[in-house]
């Protein structure tokens, strides 16, 4: 089932690169926000999500901190990675098996040719009410996140490369000059 696929995915995929597309649907299922880009991760806790459409934004986990840089806003927000795990799918995906530490897993059958699992947070302070993950074999294809406002974020991964060689520089982030830095 999907839970076995998740565990195999975490075990077999020490690092990965994939293209992703992301859409946020509101309560009425209307798309509110669409974005796309490339993500890489290396367990534990290092990742870089680069959004190139429709605007330039980068989310980096350097193993200790989560950095979010918005180019147009000329702003970087930073917070300890530990705090971000419950609220950042990027951090969850790159964890050792944080998903099982923070969420209770349940099989959710198959749909659209994928095997699905549902993850419900064990504690209240996560930003998501529910996460669903869809697998084809041991490959993660889709992550759906529902928040307390009824928004649903659907992230689709394509061309997932397992265990590519990744430049460690990808997982370091230094705020560009002249940018607002908010947070610790």
């Amino acid at each position: 089932g999907a839970i076995d696929s998740l565990r195999a995915f975490v075990r077999e995929t020490q690092s990965a690169r994939a293209q992703f597309s992301q859409v946020v649907l509101d309560r009425a299922g209307q798309p509110r926000q669409q974005a796309a880009g490339v993500m890489v991760f290396a367990r534990p806790g290092r990742f870089r999500w680069t959004y190139d459409k429709p605007y330039e934004q980068v989310i980096v986990g350097d193993g200790a901190k989560l950095w979010v840089y918005d180019k147009d806003l000329e702003q970087v927000t930073v917070k300890p990675l530990g705090e971000a795990l419950g609220s950042s799918p990027a951090a969850l995906l790159a964890g050792d098996n944080e998903i099982e530490k923070f969420f209770t897993l349940r099989e959710a059958g198959s749909r659209d040719g994928l095997a699905w699992l549902e993850a419900v947070p064990k504690s209240r302070d996560t930003a998501f009410e529910q996460i669903r993950m869809g697998f084809a074999g041991n490959g993660l294809r889709v992550m759906e996140l529902k928040d307390s406002f009824g928004n649903r974020t659907v992230i689709r991964f394509e061309h997932l490369e397992r265990n590519p060689r990744l430049d460690p520089q990808l997982f370091r982030f230094t705020p560009p000059k002249g940018v607002d830095v908010i947070g610790e």
Binding site: S88, L145, N151, T153
Partner: peptide, 13 residues
């Protein structure tokens, strides 16, 4: 007004 975080989860409405 709804504020979403970069990965789409609601922050405030």
């Amino acid at each position: 007004l709804q504020i979403l975080s970069p990965l789409g989860q609601g922050v405030a409405r």
